[in-house]
Design a protein around this nucleic acid. Sequence first.
DNA 1: CGATTCTTTGAAAACAGTCAATCTGTGTGG
DNA 2: CCACACAGATTGACTGTTTTCAAAGAATCG
Lengths: 192, 192
Amino acid sequence: MFAYFKKYLAERITLNEQDYSLIESVSVIKKLRKRQYLLQEGDVWRFNAFVCEGFLRTYFVDDKGVEHIMNFAIENHWSGDRESLTSEQPSKYNIDALEDSVIVLIKKNDFDMLCKAIPVFNDFVNNILQKRFVVMQERIHANITFSAEEKYHNFISKFPSIANRVPQHMIASYLGISAETISRIRKHALQK
Amino acid sequence: MFAYFKKYLAERITLNEQDYSLIESVSVIKKLRKRQYLLQEGDVWRFNAFVCEGFLRTYFVDDKGVEHIMNFAIENHWSGDRESLTSEQPSKYNIDALEDSVIVLIKKNDFDMLCKAIPVFNDFVNNILQKRFVVMQERIHANITFSAEEKYHNFISKFPSIANRVPQHMIASYLGISAETISRIRKHALQK
DNA sequence: CGATTCTTTGAAAACAGTCAATCTGTGTGG
DNA sequence: CCACACAGATTGACTGTTTTCAAAGAATCG
């Protein structure tokens, strides 16, 4: 199972066998059934999580009991709650599996150790952080600029691999619009 | 003028005089008049910018010519376009001064050098990045969860120091709602 | 097949945006 | 010092978008 993570790394950075051994020594494989929680609101999140296979979602529940999706993470992407991780405070979020999944967990301290021990790994991680930043910025851009229709079309063109793996109402939740509106937007688009 | 930046650092991390000298040696002071640009759409952004005094705003202009504010940066905060900085591509954003401002500019390469040379500085910078992350996450949260009224009240309670330094229509632009709507929300709030 | 989840649809209501006009306060130049 | 321009804020009337609620239809899974 660690092979997934190793492959991911090998395709992106150059590490020697010693590095891989070190990484593997602190990696914990976890399998999740569909609907199973990885993190529940109120718990402290203490890991970095790499998705080998499957599909996770991060969401929170508002005062009215409505779920809002903060993030999706498909295979070869990272999940977790960075806020809880750094503050060491209970998380506001839930993370669960939308499909059966296999993930690699690395404890915060171990992860920091890896970053110190393997400079290339550190640079790589920082690079991912930068990219994540840009993605969030673009999401904010879309949020404050686009109509519901534009938000939807922007999303499916930008994240087709997510869009055709989740039910529509989750896309709606991610975008902050109602499921019915998405349905109507699609109907509209078909009529052309 | 560098004293501002030094004071900011001194209050947050412990550095020796050698460190400060190194930092100062790569710091460029820039003064901006109100309305003056620091960055214009189409230019590549190559710095890290610390605001000593004053007030900057980052915005973009959409297809219809409407401005949307991505960020505010008051004194003791950082500004710039991380996207353009890392990609080395022309920026989509404009940054200009809402008040006369004094800023410290550090070139990307010099900044990286500082991070390598001064581990404490590096940790500090990463820490800021983490916090920035949380702020962006909370903004997305608000975007996808709140009504216009909730967005406004959330903003002024979270960022009072910004809210009473900018005209209302800029708050509206930041939140992705219309200036008139804000006016009506305030009227509503007064009637209670 | 039955149960559950997801999607679609319609009608009404709530919400927010647009446009245009007016009002307010501030600062500038004559 | 006044008159004027300008930017910002408010207001009203109207329009358009999006939500809500409820119900029915379609798809999926065990």
